[in-house]
Simulated scan of single mutants.
Amino acid sequence: MKFGKRYSKMTVVMAMLHGVVIGVAAVVVIGLVLFIGKGKVEPSASGKEVPTAGPAAVETPVETPPTDKEQSLKLFAKQHGVFSSAEAAALFIAEDPSLAKAEVIHAGGNYFVWSAVGLKEGEIETSEYEGTFRKSFSVNIATCGAIGAGKLHEVLAATEMGQIKNLVAQQKGAKDEGEMKDFYKNITTITAFTTDLRVIRLKLLSHYSSTNNCVKFGF
């Protein structure tokens, strides 16, 4: 006697088709899972998340202090003489009324008598009769910011009196003057004495090289 259930050919065919459909569906589902998984990016080793879409992340730039090179400036002076002592230089100025606005600059072990400082050679007029000549030099004021004269470079590099006046006007509108108070006071005092940019530069260099010693000369 045979035991077992007899199935028609149609039943067998339907069963086979059903199996094929299930197999295809399983492949499609697995494919979708793998595709979606590729769209996700694991956090980087640094712990920062990396965006997979949209604009790139923008990091806030870190402001760095100006370098020594950026705080250096090439200048030209009208030189009347060079002396081995401050007394001799001061006596030379006292004996010549035309040097009322001149200053004694101590640099490299010598004492120079200058009456003007320009950004370009053409700003400095020399005279064989006066015994004057043009002296090129450079100044480094990188350390002046520590004593509240961080804007000294802007004033020295100014090409118009209006630039200095605007700088002072902006300071007057500030609520807190802070360490810059003395610096702007010096600017106000000097500009009340003269509006000649060449003399203003000279007075500032003389003050901050002798009083605060933050101006370094190079020849």
Results as ranks from 00 to 15, higher is better:
7 Y>S: 09
7 Y>K: 12
10 M>Q: 13
10 M>G: 11
10 M>E: 14
10 M>K: 10
11 T>N: 12
11 T>I: 11
12 V>Y: 11
14 M>E: 15
14 M>V: 15
17 L>W: 12
18 H>I: 15
22 I>W: 10
23 G>M: 07
24 V>E: 06
25 A>P: 01
28 V>A: 01
28 V>C: 00
29 V>Q: 03
29 V>C: 04
30 I>V: 08
31 G>H: 02
34 L>E: 06
37 G>S: 11
40 K>W: 05
42 E>D: 01
46 S>W: 03
46 S>V: 00
46 S>T: 05
49 E>L: 13
50 V>I: 07
50 V>Y: 02
51 P>R: 03
51 P>S: 06
52 T>A: 00
53 A>M: 01
54 G>C: 00
59 E>K: 15
59 E>F: 15
61 P>R: 08
62 V>Y: 01
62 V>K: 04
62 V>F: 02
63 E>A: 14
64 T>Y: 12
65 P>A: 15
66 P>L: 12
67 T>A: 11
68 D>H: 08
69 K>H: 08
69 K>P: 03
71 Q>T: 11
72 S>P: 04
72 S>R: 10
74 K>D: 12
75 L>H: 07
76 F>D: 05
77 A>M: 05
81 G>R: 02
83 F>V: 04
84 S>A: 15
85 S>P: 02
86 A>H: 04
90 A>W: 02
91 L>H: 08
92 F>R: 09
93 I>E: 05
94 A>I: 08
94 A>E: 15
95 E>P: 07
96 D>M: 02
98 S>W: 04
99 L>M: 02
100 A>K: 12
100 A>N: 05
102 A>L: 01
104 V>S: 00
106 H>F: 00
106 H>K: 00
110 N>S: 12
111 Y>G: 09
111 Y>V: 08
114 W>E: 04
120 K>A: 10
120 K>M: 11
121 E>D: 13
123 E>N: 12
123 E>V: 05
124 I>Y: 09
124 I>P: 15
125 E>P: 07
125 E>K: 14
126 T>S: 13
127 S>H: 11
128 E>R: 12
129 Y>L: 14
130 E>L: 10
131 G>E: 12
136 S>E: 15
136 S>K: 12
137 F>P: 14
143 T>I: 01
145 G>Q: 05
146 A>W: 08
150 G>P: 08
152 L>A: 01
155 V>L: 08
155 V>Y: 09
155 V>E: 07
156 L>R: 14
157 A>C: 06
158 A>Y: 07
163 Q>I: 02
164 I>H: 08
165 K>A: 12
165 K>Q: 14
165 K>D: 13
165 K>I: 13
166 N>Y: 01
168 V>M: 13
168 V>G: 04
169 A>V: 07
172 K>F: 04
172 K>D: 05
173 G>M: 11
174 A>M: 10
175 K>I: 08
176 D>N: 15
176 D>Q: 14
179 E>Q: 11
183 F>S: 08
183 F>K: 06
185 K>M: 10
186 N>H: 07
189 T>P: 11
190 I>V: 14
192 A>S: 13
193 F>R: 14
193 F>L: 13
196 D>H: 09
197 L>V: 05
197 L>H: 03
198 R>H: 06
198 R>A: 08
200 I>S: 04
200 I>D: 03
200 I>L: 03
201 R>W: 14
202 L>K: 06
205 L>W: 00
206 S>D: 02
212 N>D: 00
214 C>G: 06
216 K>P: 03
